[in-house]
Simulated assay, not measured.
Amino acid sequence: MGRLTGGDPSLLRRINSAVVLHALRSAAPPASPTLTDLVKVTGLSRPTVEGVVEGLMDTGLVVEAPAEGGEARRQGRPARRFRFRREAGHLLGIEIGPHRIAALMADLGGRVTGSAHAEVAQTASADERLDRVRSVTAELLERTGVPRSRLRAVGVGTPGIVEADGRVRLGTALPGWTGLALGDRLRRSFRCPVLVENDANAAAVAEHWKGAAIGSDDVVFVLAGLSPGAGSLIGGRLHRGFGGAAGEIGALHLLGRQASPEEVLSTTGEPLHPLDEAQVARVFTLAREGDERAGAAVERFMRQLVHDVAALVLALDPELVVVGGWAAGLRGVLEPLRAELARYCLRPPKVAQSLLGDSAVATGALRLALDHVEEQLFAVESTVTARR
């Protein structure tokens, strides 16, 4: 595309198109605006709106809607109504985790239209795990009847420190993940934009969109597990840090200032081996049954988790901390966290449990894909707004 200038008519057309499309997409279903409605909402002239709508219909993003019931019964020709075609494209949100692959399908309005998941061995190689991703998404596409060519964007949430191009710079939770060009590998399968993000970051986005953090723009989401991670929103925007490593609180023990997870959860004096969720679940079961050593291990785990979170809260001063991951279901995790934050923080945040549970990562990945498509559709409007 050539360089646009302030007087370039093509820029004006793009601005008008983005404004009208935004108005149509924002109309609450089943309402379908008329041309008169669009003129009022956008402030554009009627001939301009008519021309833009015809152009958007040519692209397949807008379609003429049927007349509403009352209008159809009146004499004379009813006013033409239009709607944004949410079904004009589709999005995928994928979670690639240690034990499972999960995928969500949505239309361009963000409405979930299908889901699929499959178990995967924690010891699976990178190639085996990616093969499982392909099989899960192929199943979902076939079940929903969506051709692969209709995908507009794919979001992916995965453990590890993820660079902007989708390469996993460090990923110790999954075998063969460190250094993996995950974004490039997946783009070969989907042939559309693929956005890869850290799983805790994706979950933070999800809770802000559809979960416990709706209405809160300064949020810390804690993905509490064997090696806890955190994602944060500042002013409603995801904070990744300079290198994508913001919120990696699970790495604090590597600095030598804390015990490792294997030591924290040990009931024998020797590091817990193997360190996996089955072993850890056994420790928590023993603690509930009254085993003193297991109870002490659980107490150490809780204490270290809340101290890690407190350090992040002191740095970011969020309004809300949301706790998710498998440890969020542990009895009593929220109250100790509230007590520790009240002890250490000048203004303790609210603490809530995730409302999305094990769908948080895939939901956040879906939201990232939707954000990408919205940037494409409304980029001109956003740019102009930013310059004002």
Rank of each mutant, 00 (worst) to 15 (best):
Q258W: 15
Q258G: 09
A259V: 01
S260E: 14
S260V: 11
E262F: 02
E262V: 02
E263P: 01
E263Q: 13
V264I: 14
V264F: 01
L265Q: 08
S266D: 12
T267F: 00
G269H: 04
G269K: 05
E270Y: 05
P271V: 06
P271C: 08
P271N: 09
P271G: 07
P271W: 02
P271E: 07
L272S: 03
L272H: 03
L272W: 02
H273G: 04
H273P: 00
H273N: 08
H273M: 06
P274L: 04
P274H: 03
L275I: 14
L275R: 11
D276E: 14
E277H: 11
E277C: 00
E277M: 10
A278Y: 03
Q279S: 15
V280S: 05
V280F: 07
V280Q: 04
R282N: 00
V283E: 02
F284L: 11
T285V: 02
L286R: 08
L286P: 00
L286S: 02
A287F: 01
A287G: 04
A287L: 03
R288C: 02
G290H: 07
D291T: 04
D291E: 12
D291F: 04
E292P: 12
R293N: 12
R293E: 14
R293K: 13
R293D: 14
A294T: 01
A294Q: 02
G295V: 03
A296L: 10
A296K: 10
A297V: 07
A297C: 09
A297M: 09
V298E: 13
E299M: 03
R300K: 12
F301S: 15
F301T: 07
M302I: 11
Q304K: 07
L305A: 11
V306S: 12
V306Q: 06
H307Y: 15
H307T: 14
D308P: 05
D308H: 15
V309Q: 03
A310H: 12
A311W: 13
A311T: 12
L312Y: 05
L312P: 01
A315P: 01
A315E: 10
L316E: 11
L316M: 14
D317A: 14
D317V: 10
D317R: 12
P318Y: 10
P318M: 09
P318L: 09
L320T: 05
L320C: 11
V321H: 00
V323D: 00
V323L: 09
V323T: 01
G324D: 03
G324C: 05
G324E: 02
G324M: 04
W326R: 15
A327I: 03
A327M: 10
G329P: 04
L330S: 09
G332T: 10
G332F: 12
V333K: 00
L334S: 06
E335N: 12
E335M: 10
E335C: 09
P336S: 09
P336M: 09
L337A: 05
R338S: 10
E340K: 13
E340S: 10
A342F: 03
A342D: 14
A342L: 08
A342T: 14
